[in-house]
């Protein structure tokens, strides 16, 4: 019981330290996080004469969550390589999963305004039901979890912080820009559609669009989307637990 309380305290302190304190010091951080998703929404809506607005809305929410993973990856690489914060915490009662969860929670603080803006646009555009929320929130949490696991694992392998810049771009490109997140999978040539399903974000965006009422899905398709998204998240977290380097080899 006492151990659980200590872990909870560590986790919340990390989230406060890396989330609330920097935002309080420099609120412009928040704009930085939502700039990309909003830009995509703007351009896609304009370029499609409004026909892809709903897709871009779902895509914006997914990108906002993925950006948590890329921010976490940069932060953790910086903390590990430059500040030696990871070494400082390794030599303390703070455990690796608590560290990752705390930093992931702190990154969520940066994303909440983005989620709120997209949520507001969604509410203004269409009706909201509890059932929709019961899909959207878990989907976003799963994307947050796998993006955080991926970010942590990559961060522990970088020899220099500059490598994160390249990988952040690649992760963003591979998970949100190229796959059908901002556009429907039907917009892809038939040959490429099966490749689109290699990305977990395709399933997440499918579920979001379906929950918003923009894309009909059969029960089997929905179950498949959920199954793949949960399996992918579990696999990435397992890889993070097994392969991420807390103590240097």
């Amino acid at each position: 019981m006492a151990e659980t309380r200590h872990r909870g305290r560590s986790l919340l302190t990390l989230a406060y330290m890396n989330g609330i304190v920097p935002i309080r010091t420099q609120p412009l951080y928040l704009l930085g996080v939502i700039a990309s998703p909003l830009s995509f929404l703007f351009f896609i809506t304009i370029a499609s004469n409004g026909s892809l607005f709903h897709d871009a809305l779902a895509g914006g929410l997914v990108l906002t969550m993925i950006s948590i993973g890329t921010s976490l990856q940069s932060d953790m690489a910086h903390y590990r390589q430059d500040l030696k914060l990871q070494d400082l915490l390794v030599a303390s009662p703070v455990e690796a999963p608590v560290y990752v969860a705390g930093i992931a929670l702190s990154e969520l603080c940066y994303s909440l305004p983005g989620v709120a803006i997209f949520g507001l646009l969604w509410v203004l555009d269409t009706s909201v039901s509890w059932l929709t929320l019961l899909t959207v929130i878990p989907v976003l949490l799963l994307v947050w979890a796998f993006a955080s696991g991926l970010g942590f694992t990559l961060a522990t392998y970088f020899a220099d912080v500059r490598e994160t810049f390249v990988f952040s771009t690649l992760v963003s490109l591979g998970l949100t820009v190229i796959p059908p997140v901002y556009y429907p999978v039907s917009a892809l040539p038939a040959k490429l559609r099966e490749y689109a399903y290699l990305s977990p974000t395709t399933y997440a965006a499918d579920l979001m669009r379906n929950a918003f009422g923009f894309e009909p899905l059969s029960i089997a398709a929905r179950l498949t989307d959920w199954g793949v998204l949960i399996a992918f998240t579990a696999a990435l977290l397992a890889i993070a637990a097994a392969k991420a380097r807390w103590r240097d080899p």
């Binding site: 309380r5 200590h6 872990r7 305290r9 560590s10 302190t13 990390l14 406060y16 330290m17 890396n18 304190v21 920097p22 010091t25 420099q26 903390y79 430059d82 500040l83 030696k84 914060l85 070494d87 400082l88 915490l89 303390s92 009662p93 703070v94």
Partner: peptide
């Protein structure tokens, strides 16, 4: 060569480290 998180003040640095330790 460790360095503290630049956005914390000295009081927060010490206090939050102790809180992280539980």
């Amino acid at each position: 060569e460790s360095r503290p998180l630049y956005f914390l003040n000295v009081d927060e640095l010490i206090f939050l480290y102790l809180r992280m330790r539980g």
